[in-house]
């Protein structure tokens, strides 16, 4: 369960006014709003990637995470530009988090193979990101974010730039994975249609 209590963030001259939100465990919330209203800033603050939170508290499963480093928050992120590590294979991308957290070799192998099967990545495991299609890259980024079994999944316009066919395909995969993993999700998007298709609830900022 994610709770934002009157969170206000300052980034340079921009100030995000106090914002509160509650997302129940396992719920998927789509966050919408006009460009520049601070959706991505808020998501990055929740992930611990932006300092400058001047007011409020962020609680995840009852624990205040406002001052924790990003890696200790238990949050998986799928950024807008995907940001797959160019030098690593798909398998290495999926194993990146678990290896860092010192998982056992067998545990890592089982998790990676399971995610690859669920996301349809079995044949891509030895490929590097260069040459993957937009839809494939999104699925790898989703798998990488879910590999550590996060308590919250943050999707920052994760479907932008895809053609209609790939868009619908990846949307179905995201929806399926959120349900299968039982993870709480926060999805930032510009598209009302996408928000309604993916989320249990739509919240509009600004």
């Amino acid at each position: 369960m994610l709770i934002l209590e009157e969170v206000s963030v300052r980034v340079g001259q921009f100030v995000l006014p106090e914002f509160s939100l509650e997302i129940a465990e396992g719920e998927c919330v789509a966050l919408m709003g006009p460009s520049g209203c601070g959706k991505t800033t808020l998501m990055e603050t929740v992930c611990g990637l932006r300092s400058g939170m001047i007011r409020g508290r962020i609680l995840l499963d009852g624990v205040e995470i406002s001052g924790l480093p990003p890696g200790a928050r238990g949050i998986g992120l799928v950024p807008q530009d995907v940001a797959l590590f160019p030098t690593l294979t798909v398998r290495e991308q999926l194993e990146f988090g678990p290896k860092l957290h010192g998982w056992g070799r067998r545990e890592i192998r089982e998790r990676t193979d399971g995610l690859a099967e669920d996301l349809g990545l079995e044949k891509l495991l030895n490929r590097v990101p260069h040459g993957l299609s937009g839809g494939e890259a999104r699925r790898v980024a989703l798998g990488r974010a879910l590999a550590l079994k996060p308590r919250l999944l943050c999707l920052d316009e994760a479907l932008s730039g895809l053609d209609e066919e790939r868009h619908d395909e990846v949307l179905q995969v995201i929806r399926k994975m959120i349900e299968r993993e039982g993870v709480t999700a926060l999805h930032v998007t510009h598209s009302r249609k996408e928000a309604e298709a993916i989320a249990d609830r739509v919240v509009v900022m600004g």
Binding site: L49, G71, G76, L77, P79, A83, F85, R144
Partner: peptide, 11 residues
């Protein structure tokens, strides 16, 4: 963004 993603993964 690469570093940011790596940091959410525990780096």
């Amino acid at each position: 963004r690469y570093e940011e993603v790596a940091m959410t993964l525990g780096c």
